[in-house]
Design a protein around this nucleic acid. Structure first.
Length: 552
RNA sequence: GUCCCCGUAGCUCAGAGGACAGAGCAACCGCCUUCUAAGCGGUCGGUCGCAGGUUCGAAUCCUGCCGGGGACGCCA
């Protein structure tokens, strides 16, 4: 139970009592708006403020000020609230009791690394599929955003009490695997790389290191196409392993690596299409098999099997949705680049047609990142071979600043990433500010034994009343709400901002309140606050996959 | 042509109907014999793309323009 939810509940009870007493006349069938409660930017408005009265004004047809007064009259304050007041045009402003605030410190410390992980009211089994880049080359910087968006989202959902499976779907079935093989074969034969082939240096490297048995098999192939497939499957497995290693180096790990071919081989596509057919959404025309997507409002029907008998990529998507739900997931999250937005509707329609709730299929489209070097856009084409490898970026800039950069922006906004600027400014990057606060707290804790004191929260209630101490504890108390809200919204960029604000509050505390002093009791209480701050900073950084160094 | 996302300080971005629109970076001025100066305090900086509309109240919701990006395949 967080402070925030206590307050929301108390306001709701006051509203209901005012209603029952006839002080607040709202039609019985009216749908009540959610109680808004936020920490106002302006401290003179108190520690928490609610606009509940203003939201009820249209329903009650009374001035917001009078509603606020009616709620106030029936309000029973939770113990942490010292004062409630009404402010124009109808805000309810709450001021917390400093002793009660300080008394929360012990619970934060006791929770340790679990602090922020509240009980989930609606726990779900969630599959998060992300990156899923084709294994035709190394990851490039364009893949970075999806990797970090999916990774941080998975961490946050887990922290919020959901059961999360992280999944990478890789394509070992499509024409580009053959094109990759054809490129390798062309280089080995000394002939030009085909039009739709791959031109990067990594292709040459692979061509020079084909294992003998693969080479022999390719040479013994019935025709060129078969040779291309043999080389292509080998090459894509080499690339897939490289991708896995790159991601692991970034701290991005997966629970499941799923191949497109397994979806076909295990019969999921057939079963999926059969279910759709039984439901009446499949028909044959022009030699192809179609999904009647228009029945769900799509502007055209979609091909499942081409007239040449080959399944489309969409066919595999249908089978994969069925396969995922058969594993017991209640929600499927897909983290896709916005260039896939055209595929969103048909996937959800297919899920509906299969009998699943389309709302349980959630597709998060992140906007494209424009990589810029000295003011000029950098191409990211694997086929042309002109791209910046993700490994290269990390080696230049470091994983922590890159993670911070991507996780602190809403995934829907298009962003520019200046590679030169990122390097030059890396020391000015806010991520170091947060890490520094953590290192500084660690340093104080390290020197505590020399002063003969240790962290002790029991006296905090009476001793930690300085405004900077109070503000810092209030920040610490915000953490669980931040995590829960990010998880509910399936949008995590509030977490880095929270970390930054916590670091700022800690810096102010450090400036104003000497931790280790002659006063042993005060030192112990302040050490407890330092320890709690360090712990919550570490928890926040862990959600972002960013390291929390003990010294810098 | 249809659809999706975006347009907020010099730059990069937050603001999911509420109180004077915020942060970082950049620029400028101060602060280290004292627990980490990768820090702290201060200054400068905005017709929230434009025009209407809804509302007690709009950066936020609706409509139309303008500008940027993306998607509309029997590619993946």
């Amino acid at each position: 139970m967080s402070l925030r939810s206590d307050l929301v509940n108390a306001i709701a009870r006051a509203r209901d009592r005012a209603r029952a007493a006839g002080a607040l006349k709202i039609p019985p069938d009216a749908e009540l708006p959610e109680i808004g409660l936020e920490r106002p930017a302006n401290p003179t408005h108190g520690d928490w403020a609610s606009n509940a009265a203003m939201q009820l004004a249209p329903l009650a047809r009374v001035a917001p000020m009078r509603i606020a007064e009616a709620i106030l009259e029936h309000f029973t304050a939770p113990p942490v609230v010292a004062d409630v007041s009404v402010a124009a045009p109808g805000f309810l402003n709450f001021r917390l009791d400093p002793s009660a605030v300080a008394a929360q410190l012990g619970a934060i410390l006791a929770a340790g690394t679990d602090y922020g992980h509240e009980a989930q009211p609606d726990p779900r089994r969630i599959n998060v599929e992300f990156v899923s880049a084709n294994p035709t080359g190394p990851l490039h910087v364009g893949n970075a955003r999806g990797a970090f968006v999916g990774d941080v989202l998975s961490r946050v959902l887990r922290a919020a009490g959901h059961t999360v499976t992280r999944e990478y779907y890789f394509n070992d079935f499509g024409g580009q695997v053959r094109a990759l093989g054809a490129s390798v074969r062309a280089i080995r034969a000394g002939s030009p790389i085909p039009e739709d082939g791959y031109h990067g240096d990594y292709v040459r490297d692979m061509a020079a290191s084909v294992p003998a048995e693969v080479a022999t098999a390719a040479e013994g192939a019935a025709d060129d196409e078969e040779a291309d497939w043999i080389l292509g499957r080998w090459a894509s497995e080499v690339q897939r392993a490289g991708i896995e290693a790159s991601l692991a180096a970034l701290g991005v790990e997966f629970d499941v690596w799923k191949t497109e071919s397994s979806i076909h081989d295990e019969g999921w596509v057939e079963r999926g299409v059969e279910k759709l057919r039984e439901a009446g959404y499949v028909y044959e025309a022009e030699g192809a098999t179609w999904f009647r997507s228009t029945a769900f409002g799509d502007d055209r029907d979609r091909v499942i099997h081409r007239s040449n008998g080959q399944p489309t990529y969409f066919a595999a998507d249908i089978g994969y949705v069925l396969e995922k739900f058969s594993r017991g997931f209640e929600e499927l999250i897909y983290v896709w680049g916005e260039n896939h937005h055209g595929a969103v509707a048909r996937l959800k329609h297919a899920a509906s047609a299969l009998g699943f709730d389309p709302e349980a299929v959630r597709i998060l489209l992140y906007s494209w990142v424009r990589f810029v070097r000295d003011g000029e856009a950098v191409s990211m084409s694997k086929r042309s071979g002109e791209f910046v490898e993700l490994d290269e970026l990390i080696a230049e800039v470091g994983v922590d600043p890159v993670r911070w950069f991507f996780s602190s922006r809403a995934f829907t906004s298009g962003i520019d990433f200046d590679l030169e600027l990122a390097k030059r400014q890396s020391n000015e990057n806010p991520v170091y500010y947060v890490q520094y606060a953590h290192a500084r707290a660690s340093s104080i804790l390290r020197s505590a034994p020399d002063s003969g004191v240790g962290p002790e929260a029991s006296a905090a209630r009476d001793l930690l009343h300085h405004p900077s101490e109070q503000e810092l504890i209030r920040q610490l108390l915000d953490f669980p709400d931040t995590v829960a809200r990010a998880a509910d919204r399936r949008e995590t960029h509030d977490v880095p901002r929270y970390c930054y604000e916590l670091a700022t509050a800690f810096s102010a505390f450090y400036r104003d309140c000497k931790v280790l002093s002659e006063d042993a009791a005060l030192s112990a209480a302040r050490l407890a606050l330092t320890d709690a701050s360090r712990s919550v900073l570490a928890n926040g950084l862990a959600l972002l996959g960013i390291s929390a160094p003990n010294s810098m």
